[in-house]
């Protein structure tokens, strides 16, 4: 449940965003991070952006997720 994924904001309309991580896109809200802009990378947890992250940090996490996915062959685990 503590799983949070860094993702880039690729669409933004008020507090409604579409985010992208490693080519996966989904909807997220930015209500808790009012200052975000298009193109920012945010940590998304249970459908909400909770903080900004920089590119380098995001890359590390994406790589980690890719490894995990390899290892576990994707469990159904995106819950919140």
């Amino acid at each position: 449940m503590c799983l949070a994924i860094p993702a880039r904001i690729v669409e933004l309309d008020q507090d409604k965003a579409v985010v992208d991580a490693m080519g996966n896109r989904w909807k997220a809200k930015t209500t808790l991070l009012p200052e975000v802009k298009l193109g920012d990378i945010v940590l998304v947890h249970a459908g909400f952006a909770i903080c900004l992250v920089d590119e380098e940090e995001a890359k590390k996490t994406w790589e980690l997720f890719a490894e995990i996915e390899d290892y576990e062959n994707t469990q159904n685990k995106i819950s919140g």
């Binding site: 449940m1 503590c2 949070a4 809200k29 209500t31 808790l32 947890h45 249970a46 459908g47 909400f48 909770i50 919140g80």
Partner: peptide
């Protein structure tokens, strides 16, 4: 359910 990470999502 959940700790401080999930609670704000519920509050919203």
């Amino acid at each position: 359910v959940g700790f401080e990470t999930t609670t704000p999502a519920t509050a919203v």
